[in-house]
Design a protein around this nucleic acid. Sequence first.
DNA 1: AAGATTGTTGCTTA
DNA 2: TTAAGCAACAATCT
Length: 292
Amino acid sequence: MPELPEVETIRRDLVGATINKEIEKVAVFNDKIVRNDNESFSLYLKGKKFESIERIGKLLIFKIDSKNFLLVHLKMTGQLIYQKKDKILAGGHSLSQKGSVMDRVGGRLPNKYTHVIITFKDKTKLYFNDLRRFGYLELVGGKDLKKIKERFGIEPLTDNFVLHEFDSRIRKRKTYIKNVLLNQRIIAGIGNIYADEILFASGVRPNRRANKVQKSEIEKIFNQANIILDKAIEARGTTFSDYVDTKGKKGGYVNFLKVYGRGGKECLKCSTEITKIKLAGRGTHYCKKCQK
DNA sequence: AAGATTGTTGCTTA
DNA sequence: TTAAGCAACAATCT
């Protein structure tokens, strides 16, 4: 589940690897993944370069020129992997038809989940893989991009992410505090894993109503969001199931998780059993003693 | 073998 | 007009 830290890790890696490299060829194997007409998509990108790569929330924005942008969203199981050439097993052929964990995390490429391959002129390749096929690629113009950007709330780790704004956005809402953190129109980039981790570190239960959370608690949530997202980027993200970076490597923050995925286990602070509930259809983990 | 897994959109309802 | 809540989407694992 790529959230802000995972997508940011990918963005930084791809800036180093692909900026200003001429695209030689684009192959699309699944016509639902690319939201534009597949043929014109490939044709358009041929000969183009990425001028820069930005991110808003969990969305990657590859700038082609001042009016054209390639959007890539990984949703739950999308991957962007960059490597020199197809890895081919000795004596075998390169396209694995059988899905396996090895295919999903760190195996040979392309595999049955590879839906798009961008080949650069220097023969390096960028693979878009997605087991669940929720992710997408889309070419958009400047006006579309502007509209899309407007749909996002305040962005952590930027100058717009200030306590006052954070507080006023949360305070208005009657829904659960966790829902507010997950709502991309209010705050961009936080997903299920980091929402649970931030609330644990802040001592606030996910099912508290946002408008009933004290100002001092909102300040804690704000501070912990900054700390945790920063630390997670430093650790190159969290691999819980399918996430890997552009080299196919897992994220190290999984070793720092305090509550996510630990339902029924002992709280690392107080040894109380971690409670797992369902909130807004999401698995939600918290410590009933440490979080009020 | 049903249920869980989750990011986002779009619909319905209040 | 806006917010809240939920179904739908997709494939795989337990």
